[in-house]
Every structure is written in structure tokens, then in C-alpha cells.
């Protein structure tokens, strides 16, 4: 069952890690089952406990990071861009 979520998470686990995670996931899901026993008093909302408040800044242009600063952190770059494998053959 976890194989599907392994692919969704963009992982390709070695067998020992896959077994460890599957075992732990099984225990976690057993624990999560307690939620089924909870009957909420009403339909219930899913609002966060601390309501978000607007903290809007003035609508003015500000200098963000320089392109070179951001690219400096990239594993590979080429001609001012992030470099990735060819996607269109």
C-alpha cells in the first residue's frame, strides 16, 4: 500500500527502509483510527485555531534578492538560469 505514496513523494526506497517505513506507517494508521470514534457536536469547521490576520504592506515595489544571490545556492546553473536535465527531446 505504501508503495503508491512512496512514488507520490518522489522516493525510491531501498528495501530495508521500505520495510521500516511500512511497519511504522501501519502503527500510525492504527493510531489514527481513533479519530473515527470522535463524533463532533456539529458539522464542524476546519478553521485554524489562530485566525489569520492581514498584515499587508504598502503596495510598493521593493528590491528582492538579486538573481546571482539566488543562483549561487543552485546545485547547477547555466547562463543565469537553474539547470535541469533536458525535458523536451
Amino acid at each position: 500500500m505504501m508503495k503508491k505514496y512512496e512514488a507520490m513523494a518522489k522516493l525510491d526506497l531501498p528495501e530495508d527502509e521500505r520495510r521500516w517505513i511500512a511497519g511504522l506507517a501501519e502503527k500510525l494508521l492504527e493510531g489514527f483510527a481513533v479519530l473515527n470514534d470522535i463524533n463532533l457536536p456539529q458539522a464542524g469547521d476546519a478553521a485554524p485555531p489562530v485566525p489569520p490576520t492581514d498584515a499587508l504592506r504598502d503596495d510598493v515595489a521593493v528590491k528582492a534578492f538579486a538573481r546571482d544571490d539566488i543562483l549561487a545556492a543552485a546545485p547547477e546553473r547555466y547562463d543565469g538560469y537553474f539547470q535541469i536535465p533536458k525535458t523536451v527531446v
Binding site: Y5, L35, G44
Partner: peptide
């Protein structure tokens, strides 16, 4: 890795309502 996979699970179409949405509602309650 466990967190990434479990996150995909609780947010998936099959389990979103019974796990993630229910957890949000319980937290609000």
C-alpha cells in the same frame, strides 16, 4: 521520508476526509 509519504497519504483522495479533514475539525473543536 516517512513524513513525506504519510503526508501524501493523509492528503490523498482516499484518506483526505477521514484523516486530514477530520483532524482539522477536531483541532477547531
Amino acid at each position: 521520508k516517512l513524513s513525506a509519504m504519510m503526508g501524501c497519504l493523509v492528503l490523498s483522495r482516499e484518506y483526505y476526509e477521514i484523516y486530514y479533514e477530520k483532524a482539522l475539525k477536531i483541532r477547531a473543536a
